[in-house]
Design a protein around this nucleic acid. Sequence first.
DNA 1: TATTTTCCCACTAATCAAGTAGGAATGTTA
DNA 2: TAACATTCCTACTTGATTAGTGGGAAAATA
Lengths: 145, 145
Amino acid sequence: MKISTKGRYAVRVMLDLALNNTGECIKVKDIAARQDISEKYLEQIIAVLNKAGYVKSVRGAQGGYRLAKDPGDYTVGMILRLTEGSMAPVSCLDEGEECEQCDTCETLEVWKDLYRAINGVIDNVTLADLVAKRQQREGSLDYSI
Amino acid sequence: MKISTKGRYAVRVMLDLALNNTGECIKVKDIAARQDISEKYLEQIIAVLNKAGYVKSVRGAQGGYRLAKDPGDYTVGMILRLTEGSMAPVSCLDEGEECEQCDTCETLEVWKDLYRAINGVIDNVTLADLVAKRQQREGSLDYSI
DNA sequence: TATTTTCCCACTAATCAAGTAGGAATGTTA
DNA sequence: TAACATTCCTACTTGATTAGTGGGAAAATA
C-alpha cells in the first residue's frame, strides 16, 4: 500500500514551485537538481500536472513552469489523485468497480473507514501549509545562529 | 495505493474462520468456496497466517484450520501487516529505509499524518467487531422477513 | 490401503514502477 | 539568421510485483 514515486515526486515538484512562486519561470532542470530526481522522469510527471492545468508552461529559452493558481488552492489530495489515480484502498470503492458481494461484505466497511481517514488527511493539507512549515523551520534556524 | 488481494483475502479468511469459530476445523476448500477464491491461492495465504500462529492447522482427513485465539484478539491491522508488509504509505517511514532528506522534507509530515490515520483505522477494528456487524445485519434481516 | 487434507516448492503470465532515450517543436538571444 | 535553451512527445527497457497455477509429498483418518 505504497504511494509511488510518481505521486510523491509530483507533490515535491508542486511544493518546489510553491516555494519559488515569484511569478518567474522555473526550469525542470532546476527542480530536478534541487529535488534530486531524474530530469527526464520529472518531465513526464510535470507533463501530467501541465495537462491538468495545475501548472503553466512557457516554452523556449528562459521558459519553464509556474503554478497556475495560489499554493493555497492545491491540496496534496488533488495532486495525488491526479498522478496516482484513485486513493481508495480497494478498487471496490472506485466508481464502476463495485463488486457483487458489497451488500454482505463486512470488510468493505473497514475499507470505507480507511478511505475516509486517508482523504481526511490528504485533502486537508495545501501547498501553502507546507510552505508555511518550511518558513517556520527556516525562521527557527535563523534564530539559532 | 491499493491493498493487494493477498491482504484483502487474508482478512476475509480470518473473518470466515471467526464466523465459523465453533472449535471445529474448517477446510480450505470450504473457505475457498464461500469466499470465491482459488483454493490453491488461498492455501498460500493461509500458510502465512499459519506460520505466524494466527491459525492452528490439523492435517489429514477431517482436518482444517481454526483461529488460534479469540476473534477479539485479531485486529485488521495485524492481519494486513502480516500479509501485506508495512502499511506505511512511503518507505521513508519504514524501519531502516529512512532517506537522507528527512530533516528538510515537509512532505514527510504529511506521510506521517497519513500513516497515523491509517493505523488509527485498521488497529481499531477486530474480527469480533466484524462478526458483530454481520450478526446485527442478520438480525435486522430476520426482522424484516 | 484408499482417501482426505495440509504442506511445500516451482513456475508463469500479465501488469506496473521507475526510469532511459531520442528527437521534434518552440521560443530567446547573440 | 544561426545557435541555443527549453518544453513536448513518443517509444522503449528493465526489474519487480501481483495473482495466480500445478504437481506432488507428508500426515492423518476411515
